[in-house]
Amino acid sequence: MIRPGDVVVYTKTKHTTSPGPRAHDIEPESRGEYYTYAVDKYWIVESVESDGITCRTRRGKSHRISLDDPRLRPASFWEKLFLRSKFPSPA
């Protein structure tokens, strides 16, 4: 059960020529010029509705995510403990 104020991790898929240091699950394209990879985003839940949740990033952007999105998960205890600086502060 996700509630407002909870911290969540959203795994975002990216497609560029050079993956960053936080990239994981890196796969090269067939022609070798681009890479497809995943990056974990650390967000806080602002509101919960029946059709989805609204999350806020550290820089203040809002994202609307469906509750059944497989890329969304609650932050683990260890992520909350060791990566707390990556999550936005509660408003």
Score class of each variant (00 low, 15 high):
1 M>G: 15
1 M>F: 02
1 M>E: 15
1 M>A: 15
1 M>L: 11
2 I>A: 08
2 I>Y: 01
2 I>H: 07
2 I>E: 15
2 I>W: 13
3 R>T: 12
4 P>T: 04
10 Y>F: 14
10 Y>D: 05
10 Y>L: 10
11 T>L: 11
11 T>G: 13
12 K>V: 05
12 K>E: 12
13 T>D: 05
13 T>F: 05
14 K>A: 00
15 H>N: 14
15 H>I: 05
15 H>P: 05
16 T>A: 13
16 T>F: 11
16 T>G: 07
17 T>F: 01
17 T>C: 07
18 S>E: 05
19 P>C: 05
21 P>C: 10
22 R>T: 13
22 R>K: 14
22 R>Q: 12
23 A>Y: 02
24 H>A: 15
24 H>S: 14
24 H>W: 15
25 D>W: 10
25 D>G: 06
27 E>K: 14
27 E>A: 11
28 P>L: 11
28 P>F: 07
30 S>P: 05
30 S>G: 09
32 G>T: 03
33 E>C: 10
35 Y>M: 11
36 T>E: 12
36 T>S: 11
37 Y>C: 03
37 Y>Q: 02
38 A>P: 00
39 V>M: 03
39 V>H: 06
39 V>S: 06
39 V>D: 02
40 D>R: 06
41 K>F: 09
41 K>P: 01
42 Y>T: 02
43 W>I: 01
44 I>H: 02
44 I>D: 02
44 I>R: 04
45 V>R: 01
45 V>C: 11
46 E>D: 15
47 S>R: 11
47 S>P: 00
47 S>Y: 05
48 V>S: 01
49 E>M: 12
50 S>H: 07
51 D>K: 12
51 D>I: 12
52 G>R: 12
53 I>E: 03
53 I>D: 07
54 T>E: 13
54 T>I: 13
54 T>P: 04
55 C>M: 07
55 C>K: 03
55 C>W: 01
56 R>H: 03
56 R>L: 05
57 T>W: 01
58 R>P: 04
58 R>E: 06
58 R>V: 12
59 R>A: 08
62 S>A: 08
64 R>G: 04
64 R>F: 08
65 I>K: 00
66 S>N: 02
67 L>D: 09
68 D>V: 10
68 D>N: 15
70 P>I: 12
70 P>H: 09
70 P>F: 07
71 R>F: 12
73 R>C: 14
73 R>W: 15
73 R>Y: 04
74 P>W: 04
75 A>G: 04
76 S>T: 14
78 W>L: 07
79 E>T: 06
80 K>M: 14
81 L>T: 14
81 L>R: 02
82 F>G: 02
82 F>I: 11
83 L>R: 03
85 S>E: 15
85 S>Y: 14
86 K>G: 07
86 K>E: 14
87 F>Q: 06
88 P>M: 02
89 S>K: 11
89 S>P: 03
89 S>T: 04
90 P>G: 02
90 P>F: 00
91 A>I: 06
91 A>S: 12
91 A>C: 08
